[in-house]
Simulated scan of single mutants.
Amino acid sequence: MANTERIVGTYGYMAPEYALDGLLSIKSDVFSFGVVLLEMISGKKNTGFFQSKQGSSLLGYAWRLWTENKLLDLMDASLSESCDPNQFFRCAQVSLLCIQDEAGDRPTMSQVLIMLESDTASLPTPKQPTFFMTRDKGLPVSGSSSSKPEGILPTDSSYQQGR
């Protein structure tokens, strides 16, 4: 774990601990990998993603589909004919494990590799990610916001109250 003075990078791919506190660890890259994996399997970009009925970000959309047991709806249409639904589901679940808020809850990259290679290894249940996208220029948003995404903000209530 390292603490940086200046945060540099693309917000849609930054781990929460790095974006908020400048804390960088080996689990920061796991978060970024999870975002990229979600983009690959969905055919959608995390930055600039917005569809009001689907969620405030790609991460939020994927999480909503997970909670509704509709994760296969995340699949890019170009994959639908050639992709094994079980493999897709596994990739999506691994990506959700990678984007968990707490670095300690995320798997290591070696664990990610094992989870993706194995068809039989059971996977833990992911915890809800904290980040979503909004266009409110860095202002925390409430659950009733109809803003379109752009930057990243934590959804944690303590941040919404101006902590």
Results as ranks from 00 to 15, higher is better:
52 S>Y: 13
87 Q>E: 15
87 Q>M: 14
82 S>M: 14
46 N>P: 06
80 S>P: 14
75 M>P: 08
61 Y>G: 05
53 K>S: 11
83 C>G: 10
61 Y>N: 03
87 Q>I: 15
79 L>P: 06
84 D>K: 02
55 G>Q: 06
74 L>M: 07
72 L>R: 07
51 Q>L: 07
63 W>A: 04
54 Q>C: 12
74 L>W: 03
86 N>G: 08
87 Q>C: 14
57 S>L: 01
73 D>K: 06
78 S>K: 15
85 P>E: 07
65 L>H: 01
58 L>A: 00
62 A>L: 04
48 G>V: 03
52 S>I: 12
64 R>M: 12
61 Y>T: 04
87 Q>V: 15
75 M>H: 05
72 L>E: 10
65 L>A: 02
60 G>K: 02
69 N>R: 07
48 G>Y: 03
63 W>K: 01
87 Q>D: 14
66 W>Q: 08
50 F>W: 13
69 N>C: 11
84 D>Y: 03
63 W>M: 06
47 T>F: 06
52 S>G: 10
56 S>M: 10
76 D>W: 03
62 A>P: 03
82 S>F: 10
80 S>R: 15
67 T>R: 14
81 E>H: 11
51 Q>K: 10
60 G>S: 08
81 E>L: 12
76 D>N: 08
86 N>L: 15
73 D>E: 15
81 E>P: 08
82 S>G: 12
48 G>Q: 02
77 A>F: 12
49 F>Y: 00
78 S>Q: 13
58 L>F: 00
80 S>Y: 13
49 F>G: 00
75 M>Q: 13
81 E>W: 09
65 L>S: 03
54 Q>I: 05
59 L>R: 00
49 F>M: 01
71 L>H: 04
47 T>N: 05
85 P>G: 06
55 G>R: 02
75 M>F: 08
61 Y>W: 13
48 G>T: 02
70 K>R: 12
60 G>Y: 03
60 G>V: 05
53 K>V: 11
